[in-house]
Amino acid sequence: MANTYNPIVSKEALRWGLLQRRPVPEPGTALVFVGDGQPLLTITQGQRGPTKGEMVWGKYNMLYKVDISEHPLSFRCDLPCKTDAFDFHAEVKFNCSVHEPEIIVQRNVTDVYEVLEPLIDHVMRSMSRSYEFKEVGIAEREIGDRVKQEVYDAGFQLNRFVLKLSLEQEVRDRIRRKTNIQEEVEVDITSIKGKSELEKTVIEEQNKLEKLKIESDKLEIERLRIKMDFYNEIIQTGSLQLLVLQLAKNPNDVMAVAQMLNQQRQLAVDNEVKLLEVLLKEDAIEGSQFDDAGKHIVQRLMGLIERPAPALKSNPISNPENKKPLAEKDETNNSAESVVPEFNWEEDEEDN
C-alpha cells in the first residue's frame, strides 16, 4: 500500500491588528501569503517576511503553511515491455519533498500520492516500451532520470529515487531455459565449426600429400625412364662389359634390366611373326624363293624363342664357398669380372 501525505499543513485568514505578531515559518515548513490581485509570496526559515505595513497595503488576507520536509513514498505497478508477451513489475521507492510551495497552493494539492502516482506511472509507461527484458539496468537508470525531471516540474523534488524492474518467476524461468538452450546451441555450433575446420584442414593436408605422392611418382617414373633409356643404349651398342659394370654398381637395377631384355625379345618375336604373316598374305615370296627366305625367317624366329633370358651368375665374392682370405686370391685377377656379376648371353646368329 502506497504512503501519502497532505503537503498543506494549515490554511488561515489574516486579520491584521496592532498587537498581532508577524508570522514566522517553522523548520520544515514554508509560508505562502495570498492576496487579492497580488502574486503569491513565499518565505521559508531564515528569510525576512513582509512587514505589517506591507501586509496591509499588499492586501494579503490568506496564509498557507506548506510542509517542505521529505516523506518516504512507494508503490508498485506493471509496465509494458518492448516484447508484448512480457511485462515489467515495477517497484518504486523515493523520498518526496515540495520545492515550489506556490504551485502546491495554486493547485490545492492535498494528497501527494494522487498527484505523483499517475504522473510517475505515465512517464515510466511511455519509456518502458523501448526496452527489452534484458535491458533492465539501462531502463531503470534512464526512466529514473526522466521521472525526476517531470516530478520537479510539477513542484516536487524526488531524492533517492529507486526503480526496480523485474519479471514474473514463470517468465524468468522460461527466459532462463531459453537462454540456456541458446548457449548450448552456440556451443554446439562452435564445436561443429571447429570440427568442420579440422576436417577441412585434414582434407587439405590429405590432398597435399596425394599431390606430393603424384609428383613423387612422376619423378620416379621419369627417373626409371631415364635409367632404362641409359641401359637400353648400352645394350643397343653391345657394350656388355659396361652393362655388367653398371649393374654391379646398381644391383637393384638387375630385375628391371632383365625385364626390359625380355620385353625386347618378345617384341622381336612379334615382329618376325608379323613379317612372316605379311609375306605369306601378300604373296611377296616366289615359290623358288620361299624355301630360302622362309627357312631363314623361321630359323631367326626359333632362335629368338629358344634363347633363354639373361641370368645373373653368383658373384664369386658373395658365394660362401669362395670366401677365402684376401691373401689367397689370385693377385693377377684384377679385372672387373672378378667383382661384378656375369651374364649368360647368347649372341644372335649372324645373318647368312
Rank of each mutant, 00 (worst) to 15 (best):
H296Y: 13
N232V: 04
T51H: 01
E347P: 02
L40T: 03
K213Y: 13
G294Y: 07
V185E: 05
I192S: 00
V162N: 13
L116H: 01
E277D: 12
A268I: 09
V257I: 11
I297L: 15
Q47F: 13
G194Q: 11
N95K: 13
W345L: 09
K93I: 09
K193L: 08
Q169L: 10
W345P: 01
D67R: 04
N352E: 11
N3R: 15
I203T: 11
T29I: 03
A268N: 09
L224H: 07
A293R: 10
R225E: 06
I203S: 08
T51R: 05
S335P: 00
V56M: 06
G46D: 01
E197M: 09
Q259P: 03
S128A: 15
R125W: 12
K65Y: 09
M1V: 10
Q299E: 07
R174D: 07
E328P: 01
G238S: 07
A327F: 13
L167Y: 01
R176S: 11
T332N: 08
E347F: 14
L276G: 04
K82C: 09
I214H: 10
M255Y: 10
I103C: 00
Q106K: 07
V185I: 14
Q182V: 14
G155T: 04
R107A: 09
K249E: 14
E102G: 02
R223Q: 15
V298Q: 09
M62P: 00
D330R: 06
V340T: 07
C81W: 08
V105A: 01
P25I: 12
K82Y: 09
V278E: 13
S130W: 15
A309Q: 12
H122E: 15
P341R: 11
N61D: 04
K218M: 07
Y64P: 03
L275E: 06
K134F: 12
C77V: 14
G194P: 00
